[in-house]
Design a protein around this nucleic acid. Structure first.
Lengths: 129, 129
DNA sequence: CCGTATCAGGGACATTTGTAGTTGAAGATC
DNA sequence: GATCTTCAACTACAAATGTCCCTGATACGG
């Protein structure tokens, strides 16, 4: 159980933009919103403030602009979010999710190759232990 | 975009129990809650009512008890929920999620075998097209 | 210097979510 | 028949979420 409150969908959306930009001001984050996402500049400000309050982002001043950066590693947030969804949808079992993804999502031949290599590496690592 | 409102985490938790039980009354669903999940019987009733209102469950009377069953196929809800999470965390790309799962979650040798077979089948199906 | 644009901070509000209480009625038990 | 248990329906409320307005201050352009 993380020592910080969970993230809403909109907060996660903003956080992900910050992860990609690494250091960014409100205007940059606002302009990086997906096409069709028509929220106000002040709304983005609110989400950023909440993310900082919740402990997910750092903020520092650059002149009069606040610049945001990740405080919690994206990998950690992803692990927690995925873990929660696996619990909710699949009772904590990962294999059904993997099967679901393979059956429902599109993969290129290259994707499949990469996945095979991952599985090989996983098995190889297992043997070594 | 589904013609029905999204599901909250608690609603999803209850819906999943109904999927597993197929036809169930409030008491059965209440008693199937995970250990440690100490919510009131009346809270479960509220979630069931909301799920019905949102169009996810059917309800019929059995004596004076309401019996709930899925109205939207679990596979559909799962697809939508997983799709939304892939969008939020991975920008719609499935491969990073697969990689994340392989790297962060535990798999048995049998799991890995099953995954390999899935990939083989996926590739085989691709060749046939 | 003035007007405009932009940003931070504070605040507000509607809706959603999580949770449970109350009332009336039906079923079970004695 | 009385009492107890259980369920549905309605209701309520605090917190969370999604969203944006307003004010004051700063930076910029003419």
């Amino acid at each position: 159980m993380p020592p910080r409150p969970g993230l809403s969908k909109a907060e996660l959306e903003i956080a992900r933009i910050v992860w990609e930009l690494k250091n960014a001001g409100v205007r940059q984050i606002f302009e990086a919103l997906p096409a069709g996402r028509d929220i106000d500049f002040t709304t983005v400000q609110t989400y950023l403030r909440r993310l900082e309050e919740k402990g997910y982002l750092n903020a520092k001043l650059d002149g009069r602009n606040r610049v945001y950066s990740p405080k919690v590693r994206p990998q950690t947030v992803i692990r927690e979010t995925v873990g929660e969804m696996v619990d909710l949808l699949f009772g904590g079992e990962t294999l059904p999710l993997m099967k679901h993804l393979v059956e429902e999502r599109r993969f290129s031949p290259d994707d499949i190759d990469q996945l095979r290599q991952l599985l090989d590496r996983l098995e190889g690592g297992r043997d070594e232990k």
